[in-house]
Amino acid sequence: MLKRFLKDESGQGMVEYALIIALIAVAVIAAITLLSDGISGKFNQVSNTLKK
């Protein structure tokens, strides 16, 4: 019974997908954090241009 339990890999794929999704989420959050000032500046620039 223990050998069969240790060889069972039915949940392995789901865990791998969850880890990949978590890694992608961390990368996206880091990118948004790094780019937020530049994006905010561009929106302010566009807003000021439209007000004129």
Rank of each mutant, 00 (worst) to 15 (best):
M1R: 13
K3Y: 09
R4C: 10
R4G: 07
F5M: 14
K7H: 08
K7M: 12
D8K: 01
D8E: 01
D8R: 00
E9I: 10
E9R: 14
S10L: 02
S10A: 06
Q12K: 15
G13K: 07
M14N: 11
M14Q: 15
V15C: 05
E16W: 04
E16P: 00
E16V: 08
Y17E: 13
I21N: 09
I21E: 07
A22C: 07
A22V: 04
L23R: 06
L23W: 02
L23K: 10
L23H: 07
I24H: 05
A25L: 09
A25I: 04
A27F: 13
A27Y: 03
A27K: 03
A27I: 11
V28N: 03
V28D: 00
A30G: 02
A31T: 07
A31L: 08
A31N: 04
I32W: 02
L34V: 03
L34M: 09
L35T: 13
L35Y: 06
L35V: 08
L35F: 09
G38Q: 06
I39P: 00
S40Q: 13
S40G: 11
G41H: 03
G41C: 00
G41I: 01
G41V: 01
K42Q: 11
F43Q: 10
N44F: 09
N44D: 14
N44V: 11
Q45D: 15
V46H: 01
S47W: 03
N48A: 14
N48H: 06
L50M: 10
K51I: 07
K51L: 11
K52S: 08
K52N: 07
